[in-house]
Amino acid sequence: MAAFGAALTVVVAVGLGVLFTRWIGLALDSATLTPPERVPFLGGGQPEVHAWSRFHVRYYAMALLFLAFDMEMVFMYPWAVVFVEEGAVALAEMLMFIVILLLGILYAWREGALEWA
């Protein structure tokens, strides 16, 4: 019963909170805007078309590149586990691996994958 009372208190409190914020919103929203007041600012004009438009996600090449290299980092976990046992050999192997990846990044860079437009 005590749990039910606590739950009821929470529900009532949340309900009152929602009503209160709604009331504040309505109280502040006393100014009704005319259509010319609502349009986006373009320096004195009105837009002719609606701004729901499909545009190019230009960072997709960068996002793919990031994902690829992010996954490569997963290989570093088992390496870190055996690093103390293996010592310098592990270090050299990881360096070789990273150099190969770095060459990949340089290649992507040269091919313009990091260009925005």
């Binding site: 320096g43 078309v49 190019h56």
Partner: peptide
Amino acid sequence: RPLAKRSPDPDGLELDQLPLRIGPMFP
């Protein structure tokens, strides 16, 4: 307000082209 018309993009995609008149009081 109608939606923007599509036109080719240099990457070979067909994407919306938003016609806008900017100014004369655009800082």
